[in-house]
Amino acid sequence: MSADELKHAGLNLQEADPLTHEKAGEAIFGFWVFLMSDAVVFALLFATYGVMLRGTAGGPVPHEVYEIKSAFIETLILLSSSFTFGLASLAMKYEHKRHQLELWLGVTLLLGFAFIGWEIHDFVSMAAKGEVPSRSGYLSGFYALVPMHMLHVTIGCVWGMVMLVQIRKFGLDPMVKINVMRLSLFWHFLDIIWIGIFSVVYLQGLA
């Protein structure tokens, strides 16, 4: 098999690094399968949210709970972070300059942390208004879905930090490259989930 062949969906290393490219096929395919399974988790959480939407039990209803400004800023942050991760991936593939990869990965993580911080701020202010999961089935559905996404982003951030350390320690060895490629898939996946949350939870709730 030649290096110019696509080994998996998404960004391929190809002739930029034929050795890692050869190894990546199985590793990245496996991660796609994991994402598929994770997508099922989110699909069910979305479905549950939809089912619970009517269970407000006399408590707050969606348009009282959500703030479009906050959700829009979070969306912007997360979408930008996907763009910067794209730059990081390209830096890894073509430049072989470590600091560029480190820079963009670092920016991505900062945006990730900003996103998490903003969301926590949202949840805290919701809780202050008594909008907590114990209030109603609808709020339970919300808190099962959105913080689950946040938990994923948090894991992504921890993973990214570990990768930054590993880039320092090992340089761009095949394992590091493969794991950066996996993390990038994970990150973009979470972006897509967020777009779902933004449209299904926030936009629909405020419409």
Binding site: A57, G58, G59, P60, E64, G130, E131, S134, R135, S136
Partner: peptide, 10 residues
């Protein structure tokens, strides 16, 4: 009905 908890819910 929400009689058991969460009286502050508007």
């Amino acid at each position: 009905q929400p009689e058991r908890r969460g009286k502050e819910g508007g």
